[in-house]
Design a protein around this nucleic acid. Structure first.
Lengths: 66, 66
DNA sequence: TCTAAAAGTAAAATATATATTACTTTAATT
DNA sequence: AATTAAAGTAATATATATTTTACTTTTAGA
């Protein structure tokens, strides 16, 4: 997986730290960090939580390929 | 999670069985069955594979909530 | 009605996402 | 330059997605 810059910038647009987003989504800060870094493979449930907090859809944040 | 009828019908539209879709996405048939039944929480990587095989986007297949 | 393919379901095993703790590095502010 | 918050990173532990095997039920066609 590649770096998730869309997520990073959506978070920045709301002026949230990784820690803030972690708390709002109910996961650890490291998990958020690793997702943004593209080092793994979040569950759908977590993707949906992130979308809601960042006021985006799945395609906005997690759709890349071609 | 709720039943994923969007995925079920996208699969039906291409005339694929659960087994077919499982083979094309590289997972087991049971995994496909459980996702359609809404009994768990696939990884993003798997969602993306399913989307590609079914010619849909994440929002098409996995976005529900209001 | 028989048959076979497809779908549904379950238990145990394995792989991997995520948590926890803790340390390092970067960026911003004083 | 010193301090602090934020971000990056790593090791180990835990929760859970996914596989495997195997059985049952439903559906469609002969």
């Amino acid at each position: 997986m590649a770096k998730n810059l869309k997520m990073k910038s959506a978070r920045a647009a709301l002026d949230l730290t990784q820690k803030d987003l972690a708390q709002k989504t109910g996961v650890s800060r490291q998990t958020i960090n690793l997702i943004e870094k593209g080092e793994y493979n979040p569950s759908l449930a977590l993707c949906l939580k992130v979308c809601k907090v960042l006021h985006c859809t799945l395609d906005d944040l997690f759709w890349d390929e071609e």
